[in-house]
Design a protein around this nucleic acid. Structure first.
Lengths: 233, 233
DNA sequence: GGCGTTCCTTGATTCAGATCAACGAATAGA
DNA sequence: TCTATTCGTTGATCTGAATCAAGGAACGCC
């Protein structure tokens, strides 16, 4: 990689705030890679070989049971970090939901760089703590929420996260956005079947809470109502 | 606090590996505190005022919805770390399941100490990454596993974690142990009702997989079978 | 533009687990 | 020791979401 100072996620990824010389060193260690929609970057159970920053695109983080049941445990966006540092094996798979661009590091190389740069480890720690908070929130959803509440929560979360990703000028939640997930994937995030997801979306549409101009796009028409339905803690 | 070098969790808590002088400084910042079973140490939504190491006992980490539904998102044991460092608010409550002893720090004091001691932050990072792995595993359970699979998984997990906690000589999984959770709490960890938990335990007992000498103790009689039933990934 | 495929929706039916209900066993308190 | 209360078990019934089934809409490919 040449020049991290030109990187589009420069100010949001974990590299933000590194000293110029540190940034340069790190830049030498990484390489940019494009991945196609559907391509798996990291395999569950395999040796943890790489970690990466997401420069562009959306990917899913998933775990599965041997009989094929799959749970999506995370959805990552531009500027997010993927992979399992400081671990021999990856407990999950990472797969592109859209075409994506990554900034990839060998895991062991990244580990040792991080160990020598506390500022980077600190960023990584904060990020991991935030992810843990989100995981906890999702455990509440999976353990206790109804189908309607789950769908409402997902739509609000997507609206918020896709909003962050946009340019820093308008940084709020989006009222209309394109879902990076198909119905099956929404089900795999929410612990529901594809049919239940579809039905719940149809209900929300019939109630005028959202609109669905095409299969992938959602327009929130009554955010307050959607918030009520999500049973926000 | 006087002397961290005598602490029973000395070698397993995040303070392990600090230099003697660092350990001494940290020791000055913390204070030991006993908490009674049922007592809540941290409240969901409140300012994140304290963090702590668990010296002895078991505590639950939980989140809830305003109508009272509660999900237990973590169970912590001796040598584990509790609280939310680097955050203004605590996203969860922490409540003692048994009488417990903690080594408490003011959150802000701990934060600044940590920022100045990369070795400590590194330990915290590794611990947080492990917790995140566990949270992901649990999301798979909550999203996709059946009641039987959930119970089997919980029993194996408890067996393993209570085993670690014991003296380092016999460090394996225990075949007989006392549950730190009552039936309701097991339900709140597993996303099940108390009745379903009770029924599933009765079934496992009837099948000779486990024995239940009294309400709080479990004896695993056929670990291989229990592992099969847990649908291990 | 036609055709096959994939994705989504909707309807009918089933079922795992929730809810409702009652009772029994352990524990604590007087 | 007796009694109140909490906790756990078991049974009967209900229900939300899963499963089974069919058709329809969008998309990619020739």
């Amino acid at each position: 990689m040449k020049d991290c100072t030109q990187c589009v996620v420069r100010n949001r990824a974990i590299c933000a705030g590194l000293e110029p010389d540190e940034l340069d060193t790190l830049g030498q260690l990484g390489r940019r890679q494009r991945v196609k929609k559907g391509q798996t970057v990291v395999w569950e159970g395999d040796d943890s070989v790489v970690v990466a920053n997401v420069i562009e695109g959306v990917l899913k983080v998933s775990m599965s049971i041997s009989d094929g049941r799959e749970q999506i445990v995370g959805v990552v966006f531009a500027s997010d970090f993927i992979g399992r540092p400081f671990g021999q094996q990856s407990p999950y798979s990472v797969t592109a939901l859209t075409d994506a661009e990554l900034c990839i590091f060998s895991r062991s190389t990244f580990d040792s760089f991080a160990r020598q740069h506390p500022a980077l480890e600190h960023k990584l720690l904060r990020r991991t703590l935030n992810e843990l908070d989100r995981a906890h929130e999702w455990m509440l959803l999976l353990g206790k929420k109804t189908a309607t509440e789950r769908i409402a929560t997902l739509l609000l979360e997507m609206s918020a996260r896709l909003g962050e990703t946009g340019c820093s000028a308008e940084n709020g939640a989006l009222d209309a956005f394109e879902l990076p997930l198909d119905r099956q994937q929404m089900g795999d995030v929410l612990g529901l079947t594809i049919e239940t997801v579809s039905r719940q979306l149809s209900l929300l549409k019939a109630d005028g809470v959202i609109n669905l101009p095409d299969r992938r796009t959602v327009a929130i028409q009554n955010r307050a109502r959607l918030q009520d339905l999500s049973a926000a803690a």
